[in-house]
Amino acid sequence: MKMIEVINMEKKFGENTVLSNINFKIGKGEIFGYLGPNGAGKTTTIRILTGIIEPTSGEIYIDEHDLKNDKKYIRSISGLLTESPGFYERFNAVENISFFSKLYGIDENELNSRISFYFKMFGLWDQRLQPVGTFSKGMKQKLALIRSIIHDPDYIYLDEPTASLDPETSNVVRSFIKNLKGQGKTIFLSTHNLNEAEEVCDRVAILNRKIIDIGTPDELKGRIFGRKIIIEFEGEESKVRSILSGLNLNFSIDGNKIYLINVERSPSIVKALVNSGIDVLYVYREDHSLEEIYMEMVK
């Protein structure tokens, strides 16, 4: 099965341990978010997974190949969007993409058709023969995205893909990431943008030199804040208290709001309240953003 598997990965630079005890699996077609503060080891993890640097210890399997022995193959099926785009400023956009594509072994005819397809898709066709030095940040980022996928890789590593981009370009990039998922690509997304992670990622890992937690955004919310249901009511608080105490629930009341903690089903509770003459106005689940989870975890 096509996947990324990391087992007990550790990375040290001299005496400085940058990553320790890193374990995760990423399935085919999954968008995996990698969140963490600056210096948490996000870029180092990407560099290791793309075979740019070696881990100090641990095992990594990508596409059932051991990274230790098959770096060249793994690099050929991986695409990388680096944190800063990095292009030859005096070369035009096509020359830049052609150079990198040749290193991936793409033949000339195939390359021309891919260049035409992606440049049109990202709205860079008219600027294709302009030196990259004249491009805006957003244009360079789009070009870097093209470079990361031009060889049709199965695994795509995106390091801060929307950092310092305007909202419109960020939106284009996010749509493109979702589009890649639709094509069955496995995406490793390192980001500071928690809304973005919440929007596009199937699962996220929160990292600070070691993995603090991994799960879907919903799972993480449940683990950190518990599952809270809020019932807004109109009626006597003391009456509500006695009804809920009789149901043996973990709850608290603040004004006209009842907070039910880790309650699986709420209809029977609502029914009990209504039958006792309490008016139930709203029932809803308390929502937390990924940002709140993140702040709580890295505290």
């Binding site: 680096t82 030859y88 290193l103």
Partner: peptide, 18 residues
């Protein structure tokens, strides 16, 4: 120095070149 100034080394090393 040109590779360093333009930050092109990492994208090169991510390709199958050894």
């Amino acid at each position: 120095v040109g590779e360093k100034q333009q930050k092109t080394i990492e994208p090169i090393l991510a390709t199958p070149i050894d």
